[in-house]
């Protein structure tokens, strides 16, 4: 289905358009939610929230941006809202899995339960995700999409509404900054 066909379909029959979105995007959205929240149960709740939001705002999608950009923006905003609420509530049972190097890297503790991370990588992954969170928002988004979620540069440029060359330079800067953050953290943990 092309974008225009989708818009026409959404105007004619909202349910059919929604059904198309669940088939085409549910897996991708679930993947993004897992990477953003790093917790299976939270990701399931978030996916539902995202799809409810998509269903309620289907009428407002006029094709001003790409469908993938629109969906990713909703997912990103809902994830931010979810994390804000979670931090505010300070739910009990929060588990901080950080190794001896990760002390002081971030005050943001997260219930790390990422189903895509192997058990032996869990502690390292927690450090990496904390470092990614410390990057500037655009860099963090681009890095996560490219390195964790496996999107191509073209797809990222569509999602972030930037040119491919901008994405390349953004990722170059993100890589450099990430290594600086990790180096700084390594030094702090050594001293």
């Amino acid at each position: 289905m092309t974008e225009q066909e989708f818009i026409d379909c959404a105007k004619r029959d909202k349910d059919t358009a929604f059904s198309y979105l669940t088939t085409a995007y549910a897996q991708k959205i679930y993947g993004s939610c897992i990477q953003l929240l790093r917790n299976e149960e939270d990701a399931e709740d978030l996916v539902q929230e995202v799809f409810v939001s998509i269903y309620l705002s289907l009428d407002s999608f006029g094709g001003n941006s790409k469908l993938s950009t629109w969906i990713y923006a909703i997912t990103h905003n809902k994830a931010k809202e979810f994390l804000r609420n979670k931090t505010r509530l300070k739910r009990q049972g929060t588990l901080t899995i950080l190794d001896e190097h990760s002390e002081g890297l971030s005050s943001h503790t997260i219930n790390f339960n990422h189903p895509g991370v192997q058990l032996e990588d869990k502690e390292r992954a927690a450090v990496l995700f904390d470092a990614i969170d410390s990057l500037a928002e655009n860099q963090s988004r681009a890095y996560r999409l490219a390195k964790i979620e496996g999107y191509s540069y073209t797809e990222i440029s569509e999602i972030m509404e930037l040119s491919v060359s901008s994405i390349e330079s953004l990722l170059f800067r993100a890589n450099k900054r990430l290594r600086e953050i990790l180096a700084d953290f390594y030094q702090k943990s050594k001293s």
């Binding site: 991370v117 990588d121 992954a125 470092a131 979620e149």
Partner: peptide
Amino acid sequence: WIDDITSVSERIKSPQM
């Protein structure tokens, strides 16, 4: 150590919904 940490991203799998 930095390489070790960053290489984790290559092994993260996208879980099935």
